[in-house]
């Protein structure tokens, strides 16, 4: 591998951008394909499939064997609301290898006792998101029911290429939310990205069941048909 290629690969990884290193196992020729350039690549279909699986592997195309080294950033979930559902969601997400960040400026809710082993930011979303901006490997979940906290984060999520956006609330609550987002200049194409009512329809009742429904939907967003990246 050329050192310059290795340096680019490491830089992309540090910036939380996905890449696939293509190695022709016969000739030893290599090239690095960035996620943004993937669609136009000659091996687009194979690369896309491999990247979505999140795993490296060997593929054969036209009688040639290629090794595809997948460098996908670790997926993570950002939640607004240090609430009961988030308390159930955090340990379940950990089992799924999903990092969780909980944002809630209400210090009575955002306590390390209630949220051991997660990144907890007792700040307003604008402030918190400066440290950990949304990207294509982030799922955003709005759980506070409080527009003052949820809306700024939701707007930031809609401006990003988050692979999943979900917001808790009844259809009525969501209707009001859509009105506020429309007033803020977001069109229907934007707001259609929001999963609301949130979570897979499994009839979830308890906070843990709702967390399960949300995580099921997030995994579907991650592993399911290719998400649109902007």
């Amino acid at each position: 591998m050329d050192l310059s290629l290795l340096s680019t690969l490491n830089a992309e990884r540090a910036a939380r951008r996905a890449t696939v290193l293509v190695t022709d196992l016969g000739s030893g020729e290599q090239r690095l394909v960035k996620e943004a350039d993937l669609a136009g690549d000659v091996l687009a279909e194979a690369l896309d499939k491999q990247l979505r699986s999140g795993k490296s592997g060997t593929v054969e195309v036209d009688g040639k064997a290629y090794f595809l080294t997948v460098q996908a950033p670790p997926p993570r979930i950002v939640v607004t609301g240090a609430v009961h559902i988030s308390q159930a969601l955090a340990p379940m997400a950990k089992l799924l290898d999903l990092d969780v960040t909980v944002i809630d400026p209400r210090t009575a809710f955002a306590t390390p006792e209630r949220f051991p082993e997660v990144t907890l930011l007792a700040e307003w979303p604008e402030e918190a998101l400066r440290k950990a901006p949304f990207d294509g490997y982030t799922a955003f979940v709005a759980l506070t029911h409080d527009p003052k906290i949820d809306d700024p984060a939701l707007q930031a999520a809609l401006r990003s290429n988050c692979f999943y956006i979900g917001a808790l609330g009844s259809r009525k609550t969501h209707g009001k939310r859509l009105e506020r987002l429309a007033a803020a200049g977001f069109g229907e194409a934007d707001t259609q990205r929001i999963h609301a009512p949130i979570g897979l329809d499994i009839g979830a009742v308890s906070p843990a069941e709702i967390a399960l429904a949300i995580l099921g939907e997030i995994v579907q967003g991650l592993r399911g048909p290719r998400r649109k990246s902007t």
């Binding site: 060997t58 090794f67 080294t69």
Partner: peptide, 14 residues
Amino acid sequence: TVVETWGSAPRPVG
């Protein structure tokens, strides 16, 4: 780099 495994290989491909 591990490029292929068969059976109970100890480390995953990649």
